[in-house]
Design a protein around this nucleic acid. Structure first.
Lengths: 341, 341
DNA sequence: GTCCTATATGATTGCGGTAACAGAAGTGAA
DNA sequence: TTCACTTCTGTTACCGCAATCATATAGGAC
């Protein structure tokens, strides 16, 4: 509390204040090794009185242990990663490990930089979104010698472990559900997919499953940037003007789906009779719309939890590289915008 | 790239591979000091070939410099902090500083833990949400000797610098606008405010401004947890059943406001004639609703940007403690749910 | 009393870098 | 030629802590 000088405190200060060696102070503060109750209390009192905060930088260097887990994700603002983060935090809660987040903005170069930066802090593990990375990124990851879990997507070859869903399969599943419900004139609205590999895979799975049933997408539209709700509205209007015979629109995420839903309700469409809709992600946020949008749960929380579990297990074992592969199955929620055959 | 052993690389490895001293390698990799082009290239080639990633832990310990800025916020999933974060990231982009986020879940104890954890990494500065902290937290902050910026809220006494809006004033301003527009039978719906100090301050400012005009809140309701959109619907229904004479509802955030808006539109209310609504936060996300909800912009991006600017300036100056106080003025957006007198 | 063991504490060393200084080689002016 | 100065590279001494080993003290068995 009462440090007048601005030199920051070290173990030595606490040791002098409590009349024991630095080593004993260190032991007390880390709860490691045998220390008598009397000295323990004396040390803790001194540390508290001084307002001492240990220097983890020095500690990490000396012990060669860092309780950090690097989490590399494309964005924090789109609703899906916060939920992954809660899974990670909950899993790590009791392990002494701590997540540290880096954001890439869906750019491979940025990802490489962020990864380099994070690895230079020598974390105990890495959780990173997606399977598509630069060559250099993959090299860094495998050279790092620490457990790596790639998350969200399982369609590809991981560096080490992987936890996620198959987005191709998610697209297929949705296509099959739609067909089974009797929709035939189908459009797809989504993001520009040059960098969003998972959206692309869903799209591919979707179109291929339709193709197998002899159905072809009749219209499509891609957007980037802007408010998703507004985009959903606008794109839906345009597509419906262009292709009035549609009876189903598949949106690449729930937000633009919600925009489309609101627009169609205003226009007096009969949903889901005349027109069906579905999104992707199962956004809790959107519960409470006039109709509940059909969607597909991407198991975000569980992905985060499982990935972090793998990391902490590997850190505890401190053992051989033992890759795991966890493929979760996304489930459709029919909501109110998909007629049941 | 090709390291067969799993021992992690050090400067020494690069130095041996390139035939110069470790010091010269260090200089090359940090772009500091004079190095001839020939050796520079040799070193860079060796570092790249080995896949060397510098150890910032050692570097930070030796140089007593850490390029990290601790950012302590209550939550990442409520839409408001991601925007603050972009302001911070954008500001820090070119400074070499890097934000590291800690989340407190609106708990003082958790905040104290998170802060302790982050300070133990000896960051170059701290950006922390709110002015209400535990005694110990305040002590840690002021003892740390690094620049501290408390953000979001200016109603109180900061440890060091502060950037934000006055939430009391925001509440007052909204009350004045509502009164001016001729609404008189007013309810408030919001979060349980035991830990959300900013919501409480808005509420206080709001009620006091109404009181000054001789108007009293006729109903109120507080919630916690659950989907905000659904809560907004449910609470609005309940309040309207209980107090059918209301002509205005002030929501403590845009999401429950949107829920209420959707409900009232379904019920056929004339908005904003018969009934006005307003929220708080100016959530971009919600652009695209059938009506645009009146709201108040909390200057989130600008707060983040300004706070980070202060930190980086102070770090660069490396000078005396020079506290700043930046009070931004929130602006009402009338939207479509507030009648204009 | 002797020996052994468990408990409690201290001294030394090194983690992987960087600051600060020292030295070698080259360059131009007097 | 000599000196002063720049440019480049190396040497040494830490940074603040924890691993490791050494030491001191106390208690129990015999």
């Amino acid at each position: 509390m009462n440090n007048q000088s601005n030199r920051t405190l070290t173990l030595r200060d606490v040791s002098e204040a409590s009349g024991v060696s630095e080593m004993t102070v260190s032991r007390v503060l880390r709860n490691r090794g045998d220390v008598s109750d009397a000295t323990r209390e004396r040390v803790l009192a001194a540390a508290k009185a001084l307002g001492y905060v240990p220097n983890k930088i020095a500690g990490a260097l000396a012990s060669q242990r860092v309780n950090l887990v690097a989490v590399v994700i494309p964005s924090m603002s789109n609703m899906v990663f916060p939920e992954v983060m809660s899974g990670i935090s909950d899993s790590l809660e009791e392990t002494g490990l701590q997540p540290v987040v880096g954001v890439t903005g869906y750019s491979r170069d940025k990802e490489e930089q962020v990864l380099y930066e994070m690895l230079s802090w020598r974390p105990s593990g890495v959780i990173i979104a997606g399977l598509e990375h630069s060559e250099a990124s993959r090299a860094m990851l495998s050279a790092s010698g620490i457990p790596v879990v790639e998350i969200m997507d399982t369609d590809g070859t991981p560096v080490d472990s992987v936890v996620g869903i198959s987005h191709r399969r998610a697209g297929e599943k949705m296509a099959q559900a739609i067909l089974k419900d009797g929709y035939e004139h189908i459009a797809f609205l989504g993001t520009k997919m040059s960098t969003d590999h998972r959206a692309r895979k869903r799209f591919e799975g979707f179109t291929e499953a339709l193709a197998k049933a002899g159905v072809e997408i009749e219209d499509r539209e891609f957007y980037s940037g802007g408010s998703a709700l507004v985009k959903g509205r606008d794109m839906t209007r345009e597509v419906l003007e262009r292709s009035p015979d549609l009876d189903f629109i598949y949106y690449s995420n729930d937000l633009i789906g919600a925009g489309g839903l609101l627009y169609m309700l205003e226009q007096g469409y009969d949903i889901p009779g005349q027109m069906g809709l579905a999104g992707f992600n199962g956004l809790n946020l959107l519960k409470g719309l006039p109709r509940e949008l059909a969607s597909m749960d991407a198991c975000r929380y569980e992905i985060g939890k499982t990935a972090a579990d793998i990391i902490s297990r590997r850190v505890a074992e401190d053992g051989e590289r033992q890759s795991e592969r966890v493929v979760l199955e996304p489930t459709i929620s029919h909501g109110d915008t998909l007629r049941r055959h």
